[in-house]
Simulated assay, not measured.
Amino acid sequence: MIGGAFARAFEDYGELPHASQVVVVTNHVVAQLYVVQLVAALKARYQVVHIVKLPDGEEHKNWQTLNLIFDALLKHGCDRKTVLFALGGGVIGDMTGFAAACYMRGVPFVQVPTTLLAQVDSSVGGKTGINHPLGKNMIGAFYQPRLVVCDLATLDTLPERELSAGLAEVIKYGPIADMEFMAWQEASMDALRARDRTALAHAVRRSCEIKAWVVGQDERESGLRAILNFGHTFGHAIEAGMGYGVWLHGEAVGAGMVMAAELSLRMGLVDEKFVLRLRNLIQRAGLPVKAPVLDPSDNAGRYLELMRVDKKAESGEIRFVLIDGPGKAVLRSAPDALVREVIDACW
């Protein structure tokens, strides 16, 4: 929707769950900007609205922070009909969804994403969870929200770095599923970075359409859904190796997509022209295209160690989302020696 943040966000949603009380989970940064507007919109439907404010940042996506949500739910005597509203970016959405999946074995929740990354990716599809020091999103559940409400007005206050991070998740949809969308991004990147509402609306809509189509065929990532993780195997290693929050998720995915494309090239699946085209688009989005060094003594070895913890790994064998020709993705393993060559070539 377009307009003042949440001014009429829930007027047309008769399917909102009924409850005597709801809980808005947000962080301290987003709360200062939008919690008053959201609470005002919710009080037209719900008698009691509680607010839980969590610390901001990927480094807080852990058990300790998750327990703050459970503490509030128990303190306020919340029951199985209590609705949780996740107001924020991907971290808030993931943790709120996981809390909803666990509390009393499942209560309803609604995603209200306020970042581009969350609007085009993490709020859609039902993946919830927290990080572990040894791996990103390794503890969680598949649990679908009752509703996802995207208000483009919230992107007006998004820091430039966060906007670019969100564009990484927009970019990934082209190489894996829709090259026409990638061509549109190339033509529209300046407008997207300038926060043109029409361009952002199309980016959010088309990204959600592609993700919904994939998730509709493979909700629990037993096959096709894995293609949505293009760039994420390398990217998650960057996040864990650098320390959560040092690189934003989208920044790590941006560099990770370059590495995955380079691996696709070296496995004979795409040509160099495609890799350069994708690299240029990622760079134009304001994202890093060179990977960081995680260990000066054995950089490739450290990447391989972290990637073996990836959820797509099988029996210790790393499986990568590769581009099997533009617009088509495939999940494959690769020889460690070849992966080492890619890592060494991409920093």
Results as ranks from 00 to 15, higher is better:
155 L>Q: 04
228 L>I: 09
291 A>D: 09
211 K>L: 14
25 V>C: 14
130 I>P: 00
42 L>S: 00
226 A>I: 06
156 D>G: 15
38 L>H: 04
175 P>H: 11
245 G>S: 15
346 C>W: 08
221 E>N: 11
82 T>D: 10
177 A>R: 15
231 G>H: 05
244 Y>S: 04
216 G>F: 11
86 A>R: 00
31 A>R: 01
152 L>E: 01
248 L>Q: 15
158 L>N: 12
4 G>M: 09
165 A>P: 01
41 A>S: 10
293 V>S: 11
307 M>E: 00
315 S>P: 04
201 A>I: 02
250 G>C: 13
84 L>K: 00
93 G>E: 01
260 A>R: 01
248 L>H: 12
239 E>G: 07
253 V>S: 06
160 E>I: 04
265 L>A: 10
296 P>Q: 06
249 H>N: 14
73 L>D: 04
18 H>G: 07
279 R>K: 06
303 Y>N: 03
224 L>T: 03
209 E>A: 09
326 P>W: 00
123 S>D: 03
96 T>A: 06
133 P>H: 04
205 R>N: 07
253 V>Q: 07
330 V>T: 14
200 L>G: 07
102 C>S: 15
160 E>K: 08
315 S>N: 08
269 L>Y: 09
34 Y>S: 04
125 G>R: 02
146 R>H: 04
139 I>D: 00
296 P>I: 08
1 M>T: 14
94 D>P: 15
204 V>M: 08
80 R>I: 08
91 V>I: 15
68 L>K: 14
8 R>F: 08
60 H>M: 13
300 A>Y: 09
126 G>C: 03
283 Q>T: 12
275 V>S: 05
158 L>D: 10
185 Q>Y: 09
136 K>F: 07
212 A>H: 01
179 M>K: 07
250 G>L: 01
7 A>G: 10
185 Q>G: 09
312 K>N: 11
5 A>F: 07
311 K>A: 06
82 T>K: 13
98 F>A: 03
320 F>R: 09
10 F>V: 01
34 Y>L: 03
176 I>M: 00
171 I>C: 12
221 E>Q: 10
11 E>N: 13
136 K>C: 05
177 A>H: 04
80 R>L: 08
338 L>W: 10
307 M>T: 02
204 V>K: 14
161 R>E: 11
12 D>V: 12
50 H>W: 06
95 M>C: 10
244 Y>Q: 07
190 D>K: 11
147 L>I: 06
231 G>W: 06
241 G>M: 06
297 S>K: 01
236 H>V: 06
119 Q>E: 06
224 L>E: 03
212 A>C: 08
212 A>P: 05
1 M>P: 11
228 L>S: 12
303 Y>V: 03
87 L>G: 04
276 L>Q: 09
222 S>T: 15
52 V>L: 00
73 L>Q: 00
20 S>G: 14
19 A>G: 15
32 Q>P: 13
201 A>E: 12
102 C>D: 09
5 A>K: 11
174 G>V: 05
31 A>H: 06
77 G>T: 09
22 V>I: 12
47 Q>V: 08
236 H>I: 07
142 F>K: 00
330 V>W: 02
313 A>C: 11
160 E>D: 13
253 V>F: 02
15 E>T: 13
168 A>W: 08
199 A>M: 10
83 V>A: 01
268 G>R: 12
156 D>Y: 15
51 I>M: 10
143 Y>K: 11
236 H>D: 15
211 K>W: 13
138 M>I: 12
113 P>M: 02
109 F>A: 05
168 A>Q: 07
29 V>G: 03
